[in-house]
């Protein structure tokens, strides 16, 4: 890496602390120390396609985070894994070869598997053979939170994020049984060993997890706190992921939802998933 990420994040958080929020990304670029150029930081735009509202940084007062995924754009880049790589790198999600013990925060699944109720034999060819990008839906009515016997997984009151306390998780895996989306992964073994085996550097800014706890996407809570977009949104070069506050009628996600036909996974279950898909 050409610049010191640790220092960058620290600078960013200090800037955020100082209340310098808008437009933070540009500013952060300037703050990056050691004379590294601002170009090292990809310019993040969580924009609405063909729309005016394209803020440079996530709002600081969101009350219900949500994401719109444009599968049409996604389909144009079939083999693209940039968002997944960015997420898994940022959060030290190990790369596990054994499919039974894979760790997935954000991953691609065959369209028919992801949207079973929308699947039929005569589906548009390019949709039928496409993949959908999946992650934790951060449900408004999360079954994983209801079943957790220790409140290790909980819904954050202020912004609706479904969070995990990895210090508290006892590894009973009841949440895995309760999640209708397969969004949760269990650490069957010591995750650090995969980094050593594969020679992948551990990101010092984010903890790894320990053996025997469950983990999942956090909507990059730690980045939002610093005024940064989620890593996947930030990384997507095609603007296929749009993130924002569902409670704000002027937010790009609301703008997109108003303009496009969108679907959610298994809406009939009443979990109120907060990831919306443009198909």
């Amino acid at each position: 890496m050409s610049f010191d990420r640790r220092k960058f994040v620290k600078a960013a958080s200090i800037a955020a602390l100082g209340g310098v929020v808008s437009p933070p990304l540009k500013l952060f670029g300037g703050v990056v120390v050691d004379g590294q150029s601002a170009e090292a930081v990809p310019e993040a735009v969580s924009g609405c396609i063909g729309c005016e509202c394209s803020p440079v940084a996530p709002p600081t007062n969101a009350t219900r985070w949500a994401m719109v995924i444009d599968l049409k754009t996604c389909r144009e880049h079939e083999d693209c894994t940039i968002c997944m790589d960015a997420c898994h790198k940022t959060h030290n999600v190990p790369d596990v070869d054994n499919p039974k013990e894979q760790m997935k925060w954000i991953w691609k699944e065959h369209f028919g598997h992801a949207f079973h109720e929308a699947d039929h034999p005569y589906l548009e060819e390019h949709v039928k053979h496409s993949n959908a990008l999946l992650m934790c839906n951060h449900c408004n009515n999360p079954p994983c939170v209801s079943v957790c016997p220790t409140n290790a997984t909980f819904k954050r009151e202020k912004d609706g994020l479904v969070m995990m306390d990895w210090h508290r998780c006892i590894g009973c895996r009841y949440c895995i049984a309760a999640c209708p989306y397969g969004s949760r992964s269990f650490n069957y073994t010591e995750p650090k060993k995969y980094f050593a085996e594969k020679g992948i550097q551990i990101e010092p800014d984010f903890p790894t997890r320990t053996r025997g706890v469950v983990e999942k996407c956090t909507f990059c809570e730690e980045r939002l706190a610093r005024g940064l977009w989620p890593a996947c949104v930030d990384a997507c070069p095609h603007n296929a992921l749009v993130f924002g506050d569902l409670d704000n009628p002027d937010d790009p996600v609301r703008c997109l939802l108003a303009k496009h036909f969108t679907i959610r996974r298994k809406p009939a279950l009443g979990t109120e998933p907060e990831i919306y898909y443009i198909v």
Partner: peptide, 17 residues
Amino acid sequence: GQPFRIGNVFLYPSPHS
């Protein structure tokens, strides 16, 4: 997965579970 933390069930009782 974390047997030694089993006491958390009583430390953080969650009647919804």
